[in-house]
C-alpha cells in the first residue's frame, strides 16, 4: 500500500498539540482585540457601566415575597450584560471580521481543526467575560450589601454554562452577515430579546406567568436563573434541572448549527 511506504519517509517532527495551537491563536486574538479600540471599549466598559443604570429600576420593583433583594436582581443582570457584550457581541464581530479577511479560510489550511479555530479565537473574549463577572460580583458585594450566595455551585454552574453557550451563539450569528457592520446588526435581535426577556432587566419572579414561561426558554434565561437562584437560594430541584436542561439544549443545538451552517468564507 502506498500509504505505508510514503509515510515511512516522513522526517520526525516535533508536533504541536491542540492546546498549543489554540494558545497561539488566542494570543494573536488578544493582540488584535487590544488594537481594536471600539470592540475593546464595548467589551470592557459597557458591561461595567450598564448595571449602574439598573439600580434605580431595581429599587422601584416590588420585590416583597419574591425572595430577591436589589443586589440579587442587579448582580445576575450584570453577569448577563457581560456575557452579552464582552462575549457575544464582540465575538460576533471577531468571527465576521476574520471570515471577511479570509483569515478563517487560511487557518483551515493548517493543522488547526475547525473547533480549535473557533475556540482559540473565543478565548480572549471569554477570559474578559470571566474576569468581568468576578469584578462585578466583588463590586456588588462591596456596594450593595449582597451576602454570600446560598448555593454558590449553582451560580458557578450558571456562569460556566453561559461562557460555553455565548461564543457558539456568536459563531452562528456571524454566519448571518456579509460584513463586520452587518454582523453587529445581526447580533441585535438576540441582544435585545435577551436584555428584555431573560430576566436581566425584569426578573421572571415579577413577570406575568405565561410570559415568564416563554421567556425562561430564551438562551440567557437559564444562566440568569441559575446565578440568581444560587445567590437567593430560592430554586427548587425541578427549577434547577429545568434551567440546566434548557442551557444544555441551547449549547447542543448551537454546536450542531455551527457544524452545519458556520460560514468559513465570505460570500462572493
Amino acid at each position: 500500500m502506498s500509504a505505508a511506504t510514503v509515510t515511512g519517509t516522513a522526517p520526525a517532527k516535533s508536533t504541536v498539540t491542540a492546546v498549543g495551537r489554540m494558545t497561539s491563536l488566542a494570543r494573536a486574538e488578544l493582540t488584535l482585540l487590544s488594537r481594536s479600540r471600539a470592540t475593546f471599549f464595548a467589551a470592557v466598559f459597557v458591561p461595567l457601566v450598564l448595571p449602574l443604570s439598573l439600580r434605580s429600576t431595581a429599587e422601584d420593583m416590588d420585590l416583597a415575597g419574591s425572595g430577591l433583594s436589589v443586589g440579587t436582581v442587579i448582580l445576575p443582570s450584570a453577569v448577563g450584560f457581560s456575557l452579552l457584550f464582552a462575549v457575544y457581541s464582540s465575538l460576533v464581530s471577531v468571527y465576521a471580521a476574520r471570515r471577511e479577511e479570509l483569515v478563517l479560510k487560511r487557518l483551515r489550511t493548517g493543522e488547526l481543526r475547525d473547533a480549535e479555530i473557533l475556540t482559540g479565537a473565543a478565548v480572549p473574549s471569554v477570559l474578559i467575560g470571566l474576569v468581568q463577572c468576578l469584578v462585578l460580583t466583588a463590586a456588588c458585594a462591596a456596594l450593595m450589601d449582597v451576602e454570600a450566595p446560598e448555593a454558590p455551585l449553582l451560580s458557578v454552574l450558571g456562569l460556566l454554562l453561559g461562557l460555553a453557550m455565548w461564543p457558539v451563539l456568536a459563531a452562528i450569528t456571524a454566519s448571518f452577515s456579509r460584513s463586520v457592520e452587518g454582523a453587529q446588526v445581526a447580533a441585535m435581535p438576540l441582544l435585545l430579546v435577551s436584555m428584555v426577556g431573560s430576566g436581566t432587566v425584569v426578573p421572571f419572579e415579577v413577570m406575568p406567568d405565561r410570559l415568564a414561561t416563554f421567556c425562561e426558554l430564551l438562551p440567557l434565561s437559564p444562566v440568569i436563573t441559575l446565578i440568581r437562584g444560587g445567590w437567593a437560594g430560592n430554586l427548587s430541584t425541578y427549577e434547577t434541572l429545568g434551567a440546566v436542561a434548557t442551557a444544555l439544549a441551547w449549547i447542543v443545538l448551537s454546536v450542531f448549527a455551527v457544524q452545519k451552517w458556520f460560514r468559513w468564507e465570505p460570500r462572493r
Binding site: 522526517p11 517532527k13 516535533s14 508536533t15 504541536v16 498549543g20 495551537r21 494558545t23 497561539s24 491563536l25 494570543r27 494573536a28 493582540t31 488584535l32 488594537r35 481594536s36 476574520r98 479577511e101 479570509l102 483569515v103 478563517l104 479560510k105 487560511r106 487557518l107 493548517g110 493543522e111 488547526l112
Partner: peptide, 22 residues
C-alpha cells in the same frame, strides 16, 4: 492570503508557527 491586517509580520509568523509542527 488571509491574515489579520492589524498584526505585524512577526506576530503573524509567530501565530502560525504555534500552529505548525516542526
Amino acid at each position: 492570503g488571509g491574515f489579520p491586517s492589524e498584526l505585524t509580520v512577526s506576530e503573524t509568523v509567530r501565530m502560525w508557527a504555534g500552529c505548525t509542527s516542526g
